[in-house]
């Protein structure tokens, strides 16, 4: 099922949570909504589900305007952050709930409900736990029950709110891989919300990076990591170093030093962003960034040095090979391999 969010704005008591958000999700895609808390990602997910209604704008499921439909009519599978399992029902009753509450005309018989619930529990590898209550399950098992319950209603799309947020690191990694497998098998159009970039980059076909109620960038994990299109994405995803520079005649300058980097920006103050590990050391040339080593530490296979750059107010970090001596107070000259310049905000 294609999903299209078109020009959606959402205000809570006049406080805007989303500003004019548009997004197209292709059928069968696994999409991550990634952003810090307060970026509006959960609000967007709830708008798609119909748990909130937009102040302005529309949500389409295929060609059909879903904005006019209630959450019940939209037929979406929603997995809540803390699972929201019904504590007084057994696991199998939880899974069968969505079928049991259907109107008489479309409700399967109780044996059929039982059979389908068992099948789903089998699918999420929980067979044998049918008679347990949610309180008797581990976090990871509850997560699986929640997913089975959401899938039982044969939803048109699956929506997951921080699906791994409440789990410890090890279970989280296992479930991440498992969710990917489930998605590959069922081909449900799936949207999940996360604040964890590793999760988003590893799991999703496309990542929607959000900040302050706006979409900053939509792209494959490679695109958002390698070609961030805003200072926010640069600093939110992966590591980045930033230097305040000046544009003059299409070239970047730091104080009275030319950096050997070109830019199309008009003359004026700007910020240069690059990945700390994506730099090339140059042997003393006049067009490069020169820094003095103030600290150096070994990080895995590389050496991380902190540099004081003449003319720049803040220290920056770069990653170099581990066998580089990088003594304190020694000078290092380098140039970023990939970089972006943004006008100073």
């Amino acid at each position: 099922m294609d999903v299209r969010v078109s020009g959606v704005r959402k205000e809570f008591d006049r406080f805007p949570a989303l500003h004019d958000v548009s997004l197209e999700i292709n059928s069968g895609e696994l999409i991550a909504l990634l952003g810090p808390s307060g970026s509006g990602k959960t609000t967007l997910l709830r708008l798609i589900a119909g748990l909130e209604s937009p102040t302005e704008g529309k949500v389409f499921f295929g060609d059909e305007d879903a904005s006019l439909k209630s959450v019940q009519e939209r037929n979406v599978g929603f997995v809540f952050q803390h699972y929201a399992l019904f504590r007084h029902m057994t696991v199998i009753d939880n899974v069968g709930f969505g079928l049991k509450v259907r109107p008489n005309s479309s409700r399967p018989s109780s044996e059929e409900i039982r059979r389908r619930s068992s099948e789903l529990l089998d699918f999420v590898q929980l067979s044998g736990l049918e008679k347990r209550y949610p309180a008797q399950l581990s976090g990871g098992q509850r997560q699986r029950v929640a997913l089975a319950r959401a899938m039982a209603i044969e939803p048109r799309i699956l929506l997951l709110d921080e699906p791994f947020g409440a789990l410890d690191a090890k279970v989280r990694k296992e479930l991440r891989r498992w969710l990917r497998e489930i998605h590959d098998k069922t081909k449900h159009t799936t949207v999940f919300v996360t604040h964890d970039q590793d999760e988003a980059l590893e799991l999703a076909d496309r990542v929607v990076v959000m900040s302050q109620g706006r979409i900053e960038q939509i792209g494959t994990p490679d695109e958002v990591y390698d070609k961030p299109n805003s200072p926010f994405v640069y600093s939110f995803i992966g590591e980045s170093s930033k230097i305040d520079v000046r544009v003059e005649n299409g070239e970047l300058w730091l104080a009275d030093r030319r950096l050997g980097l070109k830019s199309d920006l008009p003359d004026g103050d700007a910020s240069l962003y690059f990945r700390p590990h994506d730099v090339a050391l140059v042997s003393d040339s006049d067009a490069c960034i020169m820094g003095t080593v103030v600290a150096s530490r070994r990080v895995g296979a590389t050496r991380r040095v902190e540099l004081e750059i003449g003319g720049a107010s803040e220290r920056i970090e770069i990653g170099i090979s581990a066998d580089h001596p990088a003594k304190e107070m020694s000078g290092i000259a380098f140039r970023p391999q990939h970089w972006r310049v943004f006008p100073k905000s």
Binding site: A49, G50, L51, V71, Q72, N75, V76, G77, F78, F80, A84, L85, F86, F97, G98, V101, R102, R149, A150, A152, I153
Partner: peptide, 8 residues
Amino acid sequence: EAALSLGA
């Protein structure tokens, strides 16, 4: 909300 989203 969970119950409503399941169609109740």
